[in-house]
């Protein structure tokens, strides 16, 4: 079952052209698929395999190795807070606790409304702006409880404003709006 849009297929086609060997495009193509679907589903892996002339087994073997691919569904906003040493000295775990309490979820969980997923992750190369997190793979740095509140509120408001729109659009516009922060 095809799950990727025409737009995604066009982008994939452009990506594949860049490589002398088709399989090389696997990581970037999985990014395209995840960007579109929010996660890398079974159908997505099958379609990617088909596009790159691989077996689905080979795709899952790769997708399951890299931490950025979600092989299970996640929320509209994925909050990934760095917990590695430099961030941990600067209060990363206190921020994780704060998000956890605010959203009522533990790391690894998704809110009941499907809006937020919280993860603890390893170093994201932003040690000088600790504590920090990435939200849908955009960086938000020098975090404080106030900043976290503002981000969560902005996300919830966007959700209300575009309730009729797709999750994908919410995700994108929210990122655009608060991008300057990164």
């Amino acid at each position: 079952m095809a799950v990727l849009s025409v737009d995604a297929l066009e982008r994939i086609d452009t990506i594949v052209q860049k490589y002398p060997v088709k399989r090389s495009a696997l990581l970037p193509v999985l990014h395209v698929a995840q960007n579109e679907l929010g996660w890398v589903s079974r159908e997505a892996m099958e379609e990617v395999a088909d596009l790159l002339e691989l077996d689905p087994d080979q795709v899952e073997e790769v997708a399951s190795f890299y931490t950025m691919y979600y092989t299970d569904p996640v929320g509209t906003y994925v909050l990934e807070v760095c917990k590695t040493a430099p961030c941990s000295f600067m209060g990363a775990h206190e921020i994780i606790d704060y998000i956890s309490e605010t959203l009522g979820i533990q790391p690894g969980e998704t809110t009941a409304d499907g809006m937020f997923t919280l993860f603890r992750v390893e170093c994201l190369a932003a040690c000088h702006r600790a504590p920090m997190m990435q939200v849908n793979h955009r960086y938000y740095q020098d975090l404080t409880p106030e900043k976290v509140d503002a981000l969560i509120t902005a996300a919830q408001q966007l959700q209300l404003q575009t309730a009729a729109g797709s999750g994908f659009q919410i995700r994108k516009s929210w990122s655009e709006e608060v991008k300057t922060e990164g």
Binding site: R42, M45, D55, P56, D57, Q58, V59, E60, E61, S64, F65
Partner: peptide, 18 residues
């Protein structure tokens, strides 16, 4: 290509696609 490695580190396991 049926049996592959899934996941990584000490979570690695052998298995098949889905």
């Amino acid at each position: 290509k049926s049996i592959v490695l899934l996941d990584r580190g000490d979570h690695t396991m052998v298995g098949t696609f889905q």
